[in-house]
Design a binder for these strands. Structure first.
Lengths: 197, 197
DNA sequence: CTAAGTGATGACACCCAGTCCCATCACGCG
DNA sequence: CGCGTGATGGGACTGGGTGTCATCACTTAG
């Protein structure tokens, strides 16, 4: 199928990550990324809509996985079970080998508000994917949106813990405890039982 | 105090809103905005860090209000009461006269992903302002973040309802019912009682 | 074996957002 | 009246992003 080097997109992603880590996001130009990948600016923008997008390649795949996982759960499952299934479906992206890459990527994103902004857009995409999937199985709009926010919050805190420098705990474990924790807080928030001050 | 026309910033905002509504966000140049306001590109960027920012002038004020409102609630108040106070503090921004402006602004933002992205950043700012204020009064990290998300969700749905074309209901009313509704759903989500399918 | 076709790439021109630097002008103040 | 301050104007410059057209690698029809 593939002619030339079939890895163009991958090479661009790797080159970008390396250069961003080396000189920072703002200080590296798209031309430099393309040069290091042995390509040109034109080709870069044929593979990525944005300079930012080169760091968020996997996010759309993730939305699809979340959506599929929820749609595949048993009709009788609770919403909590749906969220758990969604979080689990992301596990393949969090193998120990990718740990260092994720760490590096996180540092780059945290350093530039332009990238944090894009991350929020991707996160919103995840949220609406979850909400849509929940609505498709009968949840009302308000519940679907709230549950989706809760799921995304669980996911991002789980990811943050997993990507922490010295973490060795597997992702799924972290994700489940994060979700359970949030559900407990939601119950308390709703009933206003133990809320201090 | 002010020399020249003291309204430079306001004029730029009005000019931008008018031109965006007329030709769309992408099709209008910063130069065109500045020209209509009787100013120049240099001056535009001296008042706004971004082309986008010209549409989000009030957001930082809002964060401050939310934060202050929460810090001003009685120490014995529940978190739900804190959120209600925060939502109420935004009321001055939602007078009937501003209704049409808000409607126009919303349409412009909805039409351009670049602007939706910026809106998410502002919303995240609101969320962390709320979370910080809650943490400051003793809430634990997880609860603070979840409650903040819930508050922002209530705020944005309330705003959407208030800004709807044919709405005449006052903002505070809408906001309170939105918040109460979300709290009820949170309770259900936490206890997994009535969650269907 | 060759010629047409296809798809990824390169090269180049172009527009505009955003940054810098410096000149200028309006006003208050001594 | 002269000076300092602060907002503005102007112009040069970088880099992201969009086009268009030529080119080259490889496939497939003939």
């Amino acid at each position: 199928m593939a002619r030339w080097e079939p890895n163009a997109r991958d090479r661009l992603e790797r080159a970008a990550l390396a250069l961003f880590a080396e000189h920072g996001y703002d200080a590296t130009t798209v031309n430099e990324i393309a040069d290091r990948a042995g390509l040109t600016k034109s080709t870069f923008f044929r593979h990525f809509a944005d300079k930012r997008e080169v760091l968020f390649g996997g996010q759309d795949v993730l939305s699809q996985r979340f959506s599929d996982a929820i749609r595949a759960t048993a009709p009788a499952a609770t919403i909590g079970a749906c969220l758990a299934a969604a979080l689990e479906s992301a596990a393949p992206a969090f193998t120990p080998e990718r740990h260092d890459l994720a760490l590096q990527r996180r540092a780059i994103i945290a350093a530039t508000s332009e990238l944090r902004e894009r991350e929020l857009l991707k996160r919103a995409g995840l949220s609406s994917a979850i909400a849509d999937a929940l609505r498709a199985r009968g949840a009302d709009d308000t519940t679907a949106r709230l549950a989706a926010e809760l799921g995304v919050l669980a996911f991002s805190t789980a990811f943050a813990h997993w990507a922490a420098p010295k973490n060795r705990q597997p992702y799924t474990e972290i994700a489940h405890t994060a979700l359970r924790d949030l559900q407990a807080r939601a119950a308390a928030l709703g009933s206003e039982a133990d809320l201090r001050a």
